[in-house]
Structures are given as C-alpha cells and as structure tokens.
Design a protein around this nucleic acid. Structure first.
Length: 475
RNA sequence: GCUCCUAUCGUCUAGAGGCCUAGGACGGAGCCCUCUCAAGGCUUAAACCCGGGUUCGAAUCCCGGUAGGAGCGCCA
C-alpha cells in the first residue's frame, strides 16, 4: 500500500515553526516511500477561521517548497459527506442524540471538578439496553454524540512514542455534530483520513489524547486505523512553550530574518531527528534518510544560534544563482535597486563567508548598489583622519591610470601605495574600506573595488579625500 | 484533580546491557593564520534528574520518586 500523509492545519493564524516541522516530517515521509502528501484545511470552526490565515499557510508552504500532491482540501466543502456519515452512524446506533444544554453540561463539569474527578460527559442521553431515556425537551436542537465503546482498552502503537494504552472507560462520548448540525474536528478528521486513504497521521503530540477516540470511531465506521506519529512540540530557547505572545514566529518571518527555505528545513529536520552525526542535508538526503526511528519523543528548544549556523552553511555551499533571487528580494527590501551594481552572484561569492543570513548580506552589500550617505563615525575618525589624505591621493593616482580594472591589478596598486608610503597593508586598506563602504568591514579590498567598479571607486575615494583634508590632524 | 507523555554537556543530539575514560554539532574559552570582518586549522571546558531493583556488568531493562509538558469544549 502506497504511503499517503497529510498536513492539516486549522486556519486561525500564520504557519508557525512547529507546524512547519510537522508538515516537513509528513512531506518527507511520504516522499521517502514514493507516496503522496496532501494539504487539508481544517476550517470547520467558522468563527475562528479566516481567509488571511488560509493565504498565510499557503504562502508559507509555498516558500518552504512543501508542495501538496493534490489540490488543497477544505473541510467546509465536505459537509454533505459528513452529514451522510452521521446519518449512517445514527441509524447504526454508533451515535446518538444528546439534548443536554450547554448550561447543564457546564454544571455537570463543575460538579465533577469539585469532586476532583476528570470532567467528562456522564452519558445521560446515551442509549443502553434496558435504559429509559428522558423525554426529549421541545425546542432544543440536539447534538450528536459518538457512542464510545466502554469495554477493554485502545492500544496506540505510535511510531515515535511507542505503545500507549488507554482504558476505554476513560473515553467519554464526544460530540460529533453541533446543535446546528456542523460537524466537529475529531469526527471530520476521522472521515477525511479514511476517505483520503491516509496511511500515516503525523501531527503534534497535543493530539495523542484524541487518538484513542478517533481510533474507536474508525472502527465503528468499519475502517482500519492508520499509523500514527505524534511529534513533540518546539519550545522557545528558554524552554517555555512558544505562543503568539512568546516568540512564536511565522515561517515568513524567518524569511525576513534572512533564512533560506532549505536552511530552515535543514534546521527543523534536525530538531528532534538525527541521522548519526550528520548535521547538513540536502532535500534529497532528507527524503532518502528521514525515518521515525530516530525522532525524539521529547520536546526540543529552538536555538537561534544553531539556526544561524545552518543558514551560514547553506549560503556557503549553495550555487549562488540559487539564492540570488532571494538576495534580490532582501536588497529591494533594504531600499536599493540591485540593477545599479555588480551581478548578485558575484557579490554573494564575496560576501557569503562573512554573512550568516541573506538579511545580513544585504545590509553589508548595500554600498555596492547605493551611494554611501554617511561614514560610520568611529571608523571615519580612525581611518579617514588627516593622515589618510596622502594615502587616498596616492590611491586615486594609481587607480586612475590602471590599465585593467581587475582584482590582481587593483591588489598591485594597493600594495605599491603601501610600500611607497612605508605603511602596512592594513593602513591602506582600511581607509579605502571606509571610503567606499562607509565602514571598516568589507570583503577583501581588491575584490571589493573590482566589484564596485572604477567610476564609483574613484568618486568615493575623492569624497573621502575631501573628508580627510577637513579632518583634524590625528592626535 | 484525573488521563497521557517526556527526562544524556547551556542547546540539538549519538547511544538498542559490555565497543562509554559517554561521541558529534551549535554556542563558549584559548592559540595559529590574517588588509577589516569573517572563514579556516588546532586545542580545551562542559552531561547520563534522584533512589531502589534485575544482571557478572546499566546511560541503556523494571519499579518508585522528582521535575517539566499535553489533554480533559457544541475549539482545532
């Protein structure tokens, strides 16, 4: 049987990092076995579901490159099917009407908690042989409850957590259709997973306690339960649960931070999963090697430092052309036009070993595409003081006459100036850096000038010379 | 409260009874290299939650604590 997995978010917010990891695991597992992966929108709660959230989820999945093998499915478009199944269950006696009001149920739960019991439905409308049910009150629309078998136990052989056994009597009769007829989550999931031939349900471990009831429903419907893998959640770096108030970020925010999709995926796949000592995986390797045997059952903390390291490894390893579009996106976001300067690929090659993210790279590369509007104060004070004037003049002189604007030739001029003035290379290179980039950090100076081009270089050196001439003599 | 889950360096993890003097990676510290920042190379500190068992032998198996977490809706 071919593997079919699904990612089934409810559209109540952006695609967060934990959801992205669950989606990734589902995707990888399906691909590993040549199966299918599908995306299903669980939007039965119309109060909380929004179109913006649906769009945000699609956007996040698309950016990560986790493509569904089918057209997206919306539960709200399957109401007819759910209604038919509920009718069947009512007819078969595996579900029943319950007329208890919300107030009645609230009171029941309050009493149970006062008695230090687990709050649960007490079965007051559950039909049993020989039991006399109350007369249905008029004017009340009943909910439909699943009649959960109360004998024996339900065994869940979880691919990550191992065997978990639940006593059936712990499972109360959950509502599968509201008073207005709208079906509920636990029921829709069961019907959908059966209808769609889902073989492996991979989801957050906040669902383990739902699983035995879902298994019971599947059995009541005559189906065979799929395999389950409950993935632990991701914690913040302080070990606290990630929430909207506390550090929970949508995947698109990681884009804004300068991560590439592959880097995020690589970081996430190693969060809770391992393959020996291997840290870096291409997408193909992830697919080839991912398995649940090595997924940790314990929650893991999101470590930004390690994520940055993974990001850096990707920037250094990947073909520059692959990340050029994303780099372009960041430069434009920084307000510069990438057309006004050297080819992005060339800049990437020079910058990537000193940048952990594309955001950082864009910030450090702006000067290639826009004028330097202000010098870093400290750097200018140090390197563009009066004593820099002769250095800059000599450089302008040497570079103006340069026959070929190539890195080795530029390198030659810089060395010659240093020698001629009896200075160390750094004493020449640093004033140039500040002059052309505005600050004292840049790629190797010959590469920097080569990429910047002769015209811009000379103009910026000249401006710096003016600045140095006006500067107070070095103390 | 009840049910369920989890527990190895600060963090992510390797570990399937002897290969463990507990390995790798991030981060930290130090040194080397160096035109800046990096990158790179080398070195280094750092962990089996506690207590009982089982066994010739336990990080690994069992039991009990402890500490975290999840769930207990006409939410998903």
């Amino acid at each position: 049987m071919s593997v079919v997995t699904r990612f089934a978010p409810s559209p109540t917010g952006f695609l967060h990092i934990g959801g992205a990891r669950t989606a990734l695991f589902s995707y990888l597992y399906a691909k590993r076995f040549g199966g299918k992966f599908l995306l299903r929108i669980e939007d039965t709660d119309r109060e909380r579901s929004t179109q913006e959230a649906v769009d945000a989820i699609f956007e996040g999945m698309a950016w990560l490159g986790l493509k569904s093998d089918f057209e997206e499915i919306y539960q709200t478009q399957r109401f007819d099917r759910y209604a038919a199944v509920i009718q069947d269950m009512l007819a078969a006696g595996t579900a029943y009407h319950c007329y208890a009001s919300r107030e009645e149920l609230d009171a029941m739960r309050a009493e149970q908690q006062a008695r230090k019991e687990k709050p649960r439905y007490d079965g007051r409308w559950r039909p049993e042989p020989g039991k006399v049910l109350p007369e249905p009150p008029v004017g009340i629309k009943p909910v439909v409850r699943f009649k959960n078998p109360q004998d024996g136990e339900v065994v869940l052989d979880d691919l990550i957590k191992g065997r978990i056994v639940f006593a059936s009597e712990e499972l109360d009769d959950l509502i599968i259709a509201r008073g207005d007829g709208v079906p509920t989550y636990n029921f829709c999931v069961v019907v959908d997973d059966m209808d769609m031939g889902i073989t492996h349900v991979i989801r957050g471990d906040d669902h383990v306690n739902n699983t035995p009831r879902q298994i019971q429903m599947i059995r009541a419907l005559g189906g065979t339960p799929p395999k389950y893998a409950h993935v632990s959640m991701i914690l913040g770096s302080d070990g606290a649960k990630l929430s909207k108030r506390h550090g929970a970020l949508g995947v698109m925010e990681y884009r804004a931070m300068g991560f590439t999709p592959d880097a995020i995926l690589n970081y996430l796949v190693r969060l809770g999963w391992s393959h020996g000592d291997q840290e870096l995986f291409t997408r193909e390797e992830m697919i080839e090697k991912f398995d649940f045997d090595h997924v940790s059952a314990a929650p893991a903390r999101f470590d930004m430092e390690k994520a940055y390291w993974v990001s850096h490894q990707y920037l250094k390893a990947v073909e520059p052309a692959v990340i050029a579009p994303e780099f372009d996106w960041h430069l434009r976001r920084q307000g510069v036009d990438p057309a006004n300067g050297p080819a992005l690929e060339d800049v990437i090659v020079q910058q990537r070993e000193r940048c952990r993210t594309l955001l950082e790279m864009a910030e450090k590369s702006k000067f290639f595409y826009a004028e330097v509007d202000a010098y870093n104060e400290k750097d200018a004070a140090k390197h563009l003081a009066a004593k820099a004037k002769p250095v800059l003049d000599a450089l302008i002189d040497g570079l103006t006459g340069l026959a070929h604007w190539q890195a080795p030739d530029i390198h030659g001029v810089v060395h010659a100036v240093a020698e001629q003035l009896g200075l160390k290379l750094g004493d020449v290179a640093q004033p140039i850096r500040v002059a052309v980039s505005g600050a004292a950090v840049s790629p190797p100076i010959d590469q920097t000038l080569f990429l910047l081009g002769r015209t811009a270089t000379l103009a910026r050196l000249a401006a710096a010379a003016v600045h140095a001439a006006k500067a107070a003599p070095a103390s």
